[in-house]
Design a protein around this nucleic acid. Structure first.
Length: 194
DNA sequence: AATAAGCGCAACCGCCTGGAC
DNA sequence: GGTCCAGGCGGTTGCGCTTAT
């Protein structure tokens, strides 16, 4: 945003229960709409972006609170190996989890966990002093070249689907992507250039 | 018991993208 | 095609709590 928040006359920092209640009540009545005009309409002295984050990361009824389970952590590691820091895509595969939550969990827990296992958390490769064998998360997927991407403009690519992750894995040349923009909200697609 | 250090999480910041005009 | 606006996103910050000394 070019001018994300007009800081004059707006509250900042932690939300009070009263502010939470106003935001919840407003969204229950009117739904998620124009975030920029929402604060005024809801009687909140916050910027729209602050309201959006508070709702998405904390107040939304389907947000799952509490510790990550082992299978969730395992899935995050697998997805991070494939997608990198695409937190919203990763969170999209974890029902009830938000991108912010996944990102925080990665930075505070999983990075250390991988490092202690001798795995570089940035590229999921074994470090030289690796004490343990290769993590499952860094295994590459087996490819079936008969699968064909559904994207019309990726005709030069071959792809496969990773059913356990619900991911499209696409192999293509950089030239086949010329003039394209990647849709950040679409089904996660891993692109391998060759 | 007091203080420092470390950690986790919520919130903020600024960039990117898509749509409307 | 260019500009502006609004929403989405990832990186970063800062506060409060917990643990160590």
């Amino acid at each position: 945003m070019r001018n994300p928040c007009d800081k004059r006359g707006t509250n900042r920092g932690a939300w009070s229960k009263e502010e939470d209640r106003k935001l919840i009540d407003y969204i229950r009545l009117h739904g998620e709409g124009c975030w920029r005009s929402l604060p005024k309409a809801a009687g909140l002295l916050r910027c729209g972006e602050s309201c959006r984050l508070r709702w998405i990361n904390y107040l939304r009824p389907d947000v799952k609170r509490g510790n990550f389970k082992e299978d969730e952590a395992d899935l995050i590691i697998k997805l991070h190996a494939l997608l990198g820091n695409r937190w919203s895509l990763i969170a999209g595969r974890l029902p009830g989890r938000t991108d912010n939550e996944v990102k925080n969990y990665w930075n505070s827990h999983l990075r250390k966990k991988l490092k202690s296992m001798g795995v570089d958390p940035d590229n999921h490769r074994l470090t030289q002093k690796a004490p343990l064998r290769r993590s499952r998360s860094s295994h590459s997927a087996s490819l079936s070249t008969d699968a064909v991407t559904s994207h019309e403009n990726m005709k030069k690519c071959s792809s496969t689907v990773l059913p356990d992750l619900n991911l499209d894995l696409t192999i293509c040349t950089p030239s086949s992507l010329e003039g394209q923009r990647l849709d950040r909200t679409a089904t996660p697609t891993l692109l391998l250039f060759h």
